[in-house]
Design a binder for these strands. Structure first.
Lengths: 147, 147
DNA sequence: CAAGAATAAATTTTATACTATTTAATTATA
DNA sequence: TATAATTAAATAGTATAAAATTTATTCTTG
């Protein structure tokens, strides 16, 4: 390898860790689309509903901390979910700065229809349980380091 | 654990592999921002330049295959890079359907200024070389499986 | 060699995302 | 307690992304 090639080695796309992360994330979300289309959710709406299926009611800030998203992204997502009838949005009585997001009965029912999605996606990704766990731990390690 | 909790276990955010992938990708790109701001590039513009630093000239389709992006995303990115003087865009003589993207002298010079970015980012991610390689391989394995 | 098929970009539409700013409400403090 | 500081959402502006459609060009094949 020439001296010049050596010098710029670290700037090659194939030597980045960020690029496969970015590409992999996008490709998986793309792969979700046909399944999510069946329940008329986008990926962002889906992970938002996931939080609400576990915790029936919370404010935008707490939701954003769980999803690593801020109100600039969440406000339009939540308005959309409200228009679909899956959530309600109302200011908290104790502190009116907080907008309380609460799942509706229809939102609860959607959970049933979403049950088929994780196994379908798992069969696309095709990692062994050991590989999945390894990847999971490495990703959360980076998230912890970066933040 | 109750039967109901058991049933919905797979729909919990903490049990997804896609979510940490998505979150990790975004957090890393966010971490790039201050470094990329110094050379006035966005992340998408940066990975585009990376390809062009390696291969001086190619058409939009080939570029898109390398970056997993289509012309809908690349066209505005390339117009921006052109306006900054880092690339030229011209139709190929052999086949006028192809738009040939070519790096300029200024684009080449930018490579020098970008040299400091990979080591700065590496120190943020804080994975050992072994962990990095493991992660790299798992990510490309998924990309290969999904596509 | 002309009509149709295929290909490459660009454009359109919808939905994210991030940063910075603004607005409204609450808390802290001088 | 009036004012400043802080906090939570919403908004504005810029930049991605994906899918679908359109346009222009080239290839295929009858």
């Amino acid at each position: 390898m020439s001296a010049k090639e050596e010098k710029y080695e670290t700037l090659k796309l194939g030597n980045q860790l960020c690029f496969p992360l970015y590409a992999c994330s996008k490709e998986i979300i793309r792969k979700y689309k046909p399944y999510l289309d069946e329940i008329d959710l986008t990926y962002t709406q889906y992970i938002t509903m996931m939080v609400l299926w576990e915790q029936k009611s919370l404010n935008v800030k707490t939701l954003g901390e769980k999803l690593y998203l801020d109100s600039g992204t969440l406000t339009p997502v939540l308005k959309k979910l409200e228009s679909k009838g899956y959530i309600t949005r109302e200011r908290s009585n104790e502190d009116e700065r907080n907008l309380l997001v609460t799942i509706t009965e229809e939102g609860e029912q959607l959970r049933e229809r979403a049950l088929s999605i994780p196994p379908a996606m798992g069969s696309c990704v095709k990692l062994s349980p050991e590989e999945s766990e390894l990847l999971y731990n490495l990703l959360y390690k980076i998230i912890g380091n970066v933040r």
